[in-house]
């Protein structure tokens, strides 16, 4: 089955094309240009360069978050538009579930951490070392203490990855102590091939989302809703 994967939830704009057996093509940009301008041209090039007729595409995999709210919507609106235009289903995967695949071989905790701004991180914990990452702590938007606390509940070495490392490395390192590990810089960013990998798994386990019923995984209320709830508590 031929799937196209998109990811625009972080600073990386990435697209990939492949089937269960083979990654056919992947293009990624990690530059500070708007995803809105880069995503479609990348996708057009990807499909053309892979020599694939777009009518042969059988489904779309897209990250639904967590990440930049605007980035989530650019990716999802594009994925849903492709789905509507090509008449193929969409499968949504979380950014953290996809990123965990980068640490699948690590025999211990795999900890994808995304910078959520406002001194918060998006994170989830997985156990690696098997054929697929196994979730051990669900995704959350929280302060760094919560992440450190979650890591300290487990005893294995902890492998950190994701764009949250840039800002929070020192704290994570001191919290995890001798258990701290990290993936080299070039291997720890979001890539659409990881989304493809997770996409195939979700497709197999749960099937694609019913038409347009794909929900964004914002993990956080909008500012206005948060303030409204606080005021009316």
């Amino acid at each position: 089955m031929l799937l196209v994967a998109l990811d625009t939830t972080t600073t990386v704009c990435s697209v990939a094309l492949g089937d269960e057996e083979k990654l056919r093509a992947e293009y990624s940009l990690n530059i500070s240009k708007t995803h809105s301008q880069r995503l479609m041209p990348l996708l057009v090039d990807l499909i053309r360069d892979a020599g694939v007729d777009k009518k042969k595409i059988e489904g779309i995999a897209v990250t639904t978050g967590p990440g930049s709210f605007t980035g989530i919507r650019i990716g999802m609106a594009t994925a849903l538009g492709l789905s509507q235009g090509l008449g193929v289903p969409v499968v949504g995967v979380t950014t953290l579930d996809a990123l965990a695949w980068a640490g699948v071989f690590f025999p211990g905790l795999v900890c994808p951490v995304l910078d959520a701004r406002k001194d918060q991180v998006y994170f989830a914990l997985y156990r690696g070392g098997d054929s697929a990452p196994l979730e051990v702590e669900p995704a959350r938007a929280a302060g760094l203490e919560a992440l450190c606390e979650a890591v300290s509940r487990h005893e294995e070495p902890a492998l950190f990855l994701g764009d949250g490392l840039e800002r929070f490395r020192a704290t994570l390192r001191s919290a995890a102590g001798s258990r701290y590990r990290e993936i080299p810089a070039f291997s720890r960013l979001n890539r659409a091939s990881l989304v493809l990998q997770e996409g195939f798994r979700v497709w197999e386990q749960r099937g694609p989302a019913p038409a347009y019923a794909l929900s964004p995984f914002y993990l956080r209320l909008s500012e206005a809703e948060r303030r409204f709830q606080e005021k009316n508590r």
Binding site: L39, A77, L80
Partner: peptide, 19 residues
């Protein structure tokens, strides 16, 4: 509003390409 516009623009581009 930029966020609002982006949803329409992204959807329209994807439809234009697919179709």
């Amino acid at each position: 509003l930029v966020g609002s516009l982006l949803v329409g623009v992204s959807a329209a581009k994807a439809l234009s390409f697919s179709l």
